[in-house]
């Protein structure tokens, strides 16, 4: 059996990777990957191929050989003509595929996380510095487990009375009202949500809701209500305890610095 040329092998690897990302990962293993991310990965794969073929002169010449033959070798006239027709056709098809797309608005350009203020407030009352404020009931977890349990239960009650419509009964952001919202409600089961923030940050997000988000990084378009108008301070702290208790993720704390 004739061995494939290096050029053909590289081409197969490149196309194979695209098929894998676009169809295998994007449909079979997981949900579709955004085109920009696929392009980023394909760029890296191209770099990997270029590195592999160009490290040694001999390999580089071997890679270029079919290209050179196609372009200048008299015996490769047919191939040359096929390529001469195929290249513009591929470009044409690509251009058409871009223009033929339905109008698709861009995604929300919001930041990953809003920038919190330096001070944490509840209505007009200053609770303290964002960095320093702790959940006043957190210490019950060690000191008074029964009292802690009671606060978690209260948090559960608050959650299922107010939050679960959007954030879902499994806290995964899949509530009944979730689907029309853009951005979608936070998924607390995601390991990147609760563990990344202090409880004071979560308090701020709950108490101020969408309208209390900072001017920087707009538009936020968050449908989150201003919960400090409807919940007491203690209820907000309790619901934070419930979120971490239910998901098993601990909010961020800080050890000692250098």
């Amino acid at each position: 059996m004739k061995r494939l040329s290096l050029f053909t092998t590289c081409l197969i690897i490149f196309v194979g990777c695209w098929v894998f990302l676009r169809f295998i990962v994007g449909s079979v293993i997981s949900v579709p990957i955004p085109g920009s991310v696929v392009a980023m990965y394909m760029g890296l794969i191209l770099i990997a191929i270029l590195v592999h073929i160009s490290v040694e002169d001999s390999r580089f010449r071997e890679f270029l050989r079919p290209l050179r033959e196609t372009l200048v070798d008299d015996n490769r006239r047919v191939r040359r003509r096929v390529v001469a027709v195929l290249v513009p056709l591929v470009l044409l098809a690509y251009t058409y595929s871009i223009f033929a797309q339905r109008a698709n608005p861009p995604g929300n350009p919001r930041d990953a996380h809003p920038s919190p203020p330096l001070e944490l407030t509840y209505k007009d009352e200053v609770i303290g510095k964002m960095q320093e404020v702790e959940n006043p009931f957190r210490h019950y977890e060690k000191d008074e487990p029964e009292a802690f349990k009671a606060h978690v239960e209260n948090g559960r009650r608050v959650y299922y009375q107010n939050c679960f419509y959007c954030h879902g009964d499994d806290l995964d952001g899949q509530g009944h009202f979730a689907s029309p919202l853009q951005p979608l409600p936070a998924n607390f089961q995601d390991p990147g949500i609760i563990p990344n923030f202090q409880e004071s940050f979560l308090f701020w997000r709950i108490s101020k809701g969408g309208p209390g988000l900072p001017a920087a990084g707009t538009p936020w378009d968050s449908a989150m209500p201003i919960w400090e108008n409807m919940l007491t301070k203690d209820e907000i702290w309790d619901v934070i305890l419930f979120l971490s208790d239910y998901t098993g993720y601990q909010p961020r704390t800080f050890g000692e610095g250098h």
């Binding site: 955004p34 085109g35 920009s36 991310v37 698709n104 861009p106 995604g107 350009p109 919001r110």
Partner: peptide, 9 residues
């Protein structure tokens, strides 16, 4: 990925 995705993505 919101900044580099379309709304359908």
């Amino acid at each position: 990925l919101s900044k580099i995705s379309t709304s359908s993505e």
